[in-house]
């Protein structure tokens, strides 16, 4: 770990004042469940770490007076979110948190921290950069757990946020502040993410001195849920994830938002899947059809390693 300056602001304004416009100079710390490992391995080497977990105004879950929904502070811990009656209306979000597979992660991680989890790509995490040689290390290397959608550019990693697919499906908006305290915008959460096209860019659209202070959910109406295919009960990344929010009337889906996780450099909004289910009753068959539609355009990076299926041809002696 490189030595860094540690700052612990107590207000949003103080936090913004501590950030640098230059990428990589400052890193935000909330629960630290992701950042600390990256600092330890010196994948990130900031001069200053700004802890935003102690900012009161970012620790609350409140009814959103204007929109009728809920505003969740970015520094809210996941287990507090899980216990909040205000969030019971959003099953997709609750399912993600309860399915994390780690009480420690639930207690330590924050909503904002999860949205900004850095990709798990092992080439990135061993210090080769987010794009790892313009995507070549992934393309020629061991690319299991890498992108199958949105991977035609150099970015082959998959978005790591567990909550983002659910929150996007639920129609969440991010309140973004900065560079100054007077700068405030409300961004549909899916627009927070972007696929970097050159090394040095990150996987979100924020400036280095912007911060997501809150996530705002519209009123929790309709049906929502998630499905994560996990190899093991632990806190590891799912192999694939999907979140769906549906408005069902008279047994028929009228509106649908389906978002895939762990499959692309961003949370992947699948309009194809939504189209497939809208106007249908939800049955195992129509759900499967939506699933097929979601991955119809999937193009896995060709898998290189042998995967141990190498019986030599012919006789053995």
């Amino acid at each position: 770990m490189k030595a860094f300056e540690y700052a612990q602001p107590t207000t949003q304004a103080e936090a913004l004042a501590l950030l640098s416009p230059e990428p990589g100079k400052c890193e935000l710390l909330a629960g630290g469940s992701d950042l600390v490992g990256l600092l330890e391995k010196m994948v990130l080497t900031p001069d200053r770490v700004v802890n935003i977990a102690e900012i009161d105004s970012m620790q609350q879950i409140e009814a959103d007076e204007i929109g009728g929904g809920v505003a969740i502070g970015a520094a809210v811990h996941l287990d507090d979110a899980l216990d909040s009656p205000l969030l019971a209306m959003y099953p997709a979000m609750m399912q993600v948190i309860s399915g994390l597979g780690s009480m420690q992660a639930q207690a330590q991680s924050t909503v904002g921290g999860d949205l900004f989890r850095r990709p798990s790509c092992w080439y990135f995490r061993s210090g080769n950069g987010l794009l790892a040689g313009g995507g070549q290390m992934v393309a020629l290397g061991d690319n299991r757990f890498h992108a199958i959608l949105g991977n035609d550019g150099p970015a082959k990693f998959v978005s790591a946020s567990r909550l983002a697919p659910a929150l996007i499906a639920l129609g969440a908006t991010a309140r973004v502040i900065g560079p100054t305290i007077d700068d405030e915008e409300f961004l549909p959460l899916e627009e927070l993410y972007r696929t970097p096209s050159r090394e040095g860019q990150r996987e979100t659209a924020l400036l280095p001195n912007q911060v997501v202070s809150h996530v705002i959910l519209p009123p929790g109406e309709g049906t929502s849920g998630i499905y994560e295919a996990k190899h093991g009960a632990g806190p590891g990344d799912p192999m694939a994830a999907a979140a769906a929010a549906l408005r069902i009337e008279g047994g028929v889906v009228r509106e649908a938002k389906i978002v895939l996780g762990q499959v692309a450099p961003t949370p992947w909004v699948s309009r194809e899947a939504a189209r497939a289910i809208v106007g249908q009753r939800v049955t195992p068959e129509t759900a499967a059809a939506a699933g097929r539609a979601a991955v119809a355009k999937a193009a896995p990076v060709r898998y290189r390693p042998s995967e141990g299926q190498h019986p030599p041809s012919g006789t053995v002696h």
């Binding site: 490992g37 798990s120 995490r125 290397g141 009960a233 590891g236």
Partner: peptide, 15 residues
């Protein structure tokens, strides 16, 4: 490549 606890998969009690 997977020389980290996060990537080196191990079962949990649930497994």
């Amino acid at each position: 490549l997977n020389a980290e606890m996060r990537d080196y998969k191990l079962p949990r009690l649930g497994d």
